[in-house]
C-alpha cells in the first residue's frame, strides 16, 4: 500500500501544475500575451523586439545555426535566470513562455551550450494593465 502514496503525490502535483502552469499558446483568441521571435544563428541572437508589455511573454526561438542552442532570459543583474529554452536542435523552433513584471532584463543565446553566450542584449518590460502581481 505504501507504494501508492508516491503515485498519489505525483498525480496531485501534476494536477496542480495543470491548473497553474499552463499558459495560452500562440494564435489563441483572447490571449493577452506578447509573442516575440528569436533567431539564434552561429553568430547572432536576434530578438524581434527589445521590449514587451508586462504579463505573459512568449519567445519562439528558431535555431538557424548548425549547433544545438539555448536561449536565456536573464534578470537585471545579468546572472539570475528568469527563463530558459533548452535542446533547440538545428532547424527547430522551441517556445519559452514566462510571466514578466516590468523591469530590465537581458536576452542571450548559447550555441554549442557552452560559454557565456552570444548576442547579450537589453530587454525592457513596460508596465501594463495585464501585469500580474509578481
Amino acid at each position: 500500500m505504501r507504494a501508492r502514496f508516491p503515485l498519489l503525490g505525483l498525480a496531485s502535483a501534476a494536477g496542480l501544475l495543470a491548473l497553474t502552469g499552463c499558459v495560452p499558446n500562440a494564435g489563441t483568441s483572447g490571449a493577452s500575451h506578447a509573442s516575440l521571435t528569436v533567431d539564434s544563428s552561429a553568430t547572432a541572437c536576434a530578438v524581434s523586439a527589445a521590449e514587451a508589455p508586462a504579463g505573459s511573454v512568449r519567445f519562439t526561438v528558431t535555431n538557424s545555426g548548425d549547433q544545438v542552442t539555448e536561449f536565456y532570459l536573464l534578470a537585471e543583474d545579468g546572472l539570475r535566470i528568469v527563463g530558459e529554452a533548452e535542446n533547440i536542435g538545428p532547424g527547430l523552433s522551441r517556445n519559452l513562455v514566462v510571466q514578466l513584471a516590468a523591469g530590465h532584463y537581458f536576452t542571450a543565446c548559447k550555441p554549442g551550450m557552452t560559454g557565456d553566450g552570444i548576442g547579450k542584449a537589453d530587454f525592457t518590460v513596460t508596465e501594463s494593465d495585464a501585469a500580474p502581481n509578481l
Binding site: G21, C22, R58
Partner: peptide, 17 residues
C-alpha cells in the same frame, strides 16, 4: 498543438520534482 503551453517555472518544477 493545443490551446495551452507550459510556463518556464512549471517546466523546471516538474523537472526538479
Amino acid at each position: 498543438f493545443g490551446t495551452y503551453g507550459l510556463s518556464f517555472a512549471a517546466r523546471e518544477t516538474i523537472g526538479g520534482v
